[in-house]
């Protein structure tokens, strides 16, 4: 794998993460717990969607094969998506959604922070822009985690349960492969080992404020970086790609 190929694949993964999370959050439009919170969720979905478009565009530019961001989003199969498994997990109840947001955004923020100084100017510019959006997302979802964790007995129990349920997907955040390694060495990319320490420290402080317990590290699920997904992913993709699959080239 050349360094440019690795960079392209890294960009696609960033795009996949953002797109799949955008799709999940969009499912909450018209079924949010409160009107204002629903609007916040829709804003977040649009932020991720915008980021996905930028990551994909840069990847397509590097790839130079004439593919576009739409091809990436709508015409690739399940195994070609390399998003983190955490992000494709269903919304379930609001506590699950918030825990998914906190676990991912606290990682993503650190990842973007490192990418602001990376060796590819295109990626660095996107990272700088996305970083501001994610700082706000994390602020918002962290407040919710504290509100639910330190709220009523019921909300505490349910959000603690969400944390246990989703914890098995948190190991994969730091489970880098050759692509991450090339990014780190040749493009001054993120160091996943040090990010993991910062992530844990930050999360421990937040969970303590929320009176929640950090789950024991158990068996961790992984495979997203290699395109191996959980059972939920095919359904998500079918819904997301339905229109382009049924009416190829449709536009408005």
């Amino acid at each position: 794998m050349t360094s440019d190929q690795a960079l392209t694949r890294y960009l696609l993964r960033l795009g996949d993460n953002a797109l799949i999370l955008a799709q999940r959050l969009s499912e909450l439009v018209a079924s949010g717990p409160e009107l204002e919170e629903e609007l916040a969720t829709a804003n977040f979905a649009l932020d991720y969607l915008g980021q996905a478009r930028m990551f994909y565009s840069r990847a397509c530019e590097l790839e130079g094969a004439g593919r576009t961001e739409d091809d990436m989003a709508f015409l690739r199969g399940e195994r070609e998506f390399e998003n983190l498994l955490l992000l494709e997990q269903p919304n379930h109840h609001f506590g699950d959604t918030i825990v998914r947001q906190v676990l991912f955004d606290s990682f993503y923020l650190l990842q973007l922070e490192a990418l602001i100084n990376c060796g590819d100017q295109g990626l660095a510019d996107i990272a700088a822009r996305a970083h501001k959006e994610i700082r706000y997302h994390l602020r918002h979802s962290s407040q919710w985690l504290v509100r639910l964790g330190d709220g009523t007995d019921k909300s505490h129990a349910r959000v603690q349960e969400s944390l246990h349920r989703l914890w098995r997907y948190s190991g994969e955040l730091f489970d880098g492969d050759a692509v991450d390694e090339i990014l780190r060495q040749e493009f001054n990319g993120p160091d996943l080992v040090s990010i993991r320490e910062q992530w844990r420290a930050g999360l421990q402080t937040l969970l303590a404020t929320a009176t929640l317990t950090v789950p024991e590290d158990q068996w961790m699920d992984s495979g997203g970086r290699q395109g191996r997904h959980t059972e939920h992913f095919g359904y998500l993709l079918a819904e997301m790609q339905y229109l382009q699959r049924s009416f190829p080239g449709a536009s408005w």
């Binding site: 009107l35 204002e36 916040a40 804003n43 706000y136 509100r147």
Partner: peptide
């Protein structure tokens, strides 16, 4: 105006509803 459970949430909601 916005509905919110506490003052910080009110700020967030105001941001998301009125300054997008």
């Amino acid at each position: 105006s916005v509905h919110a459970a506490d003052s910080q949430m009110a700020l967030d909601h105001a941001r998301d509803v009125y300054t997008r």
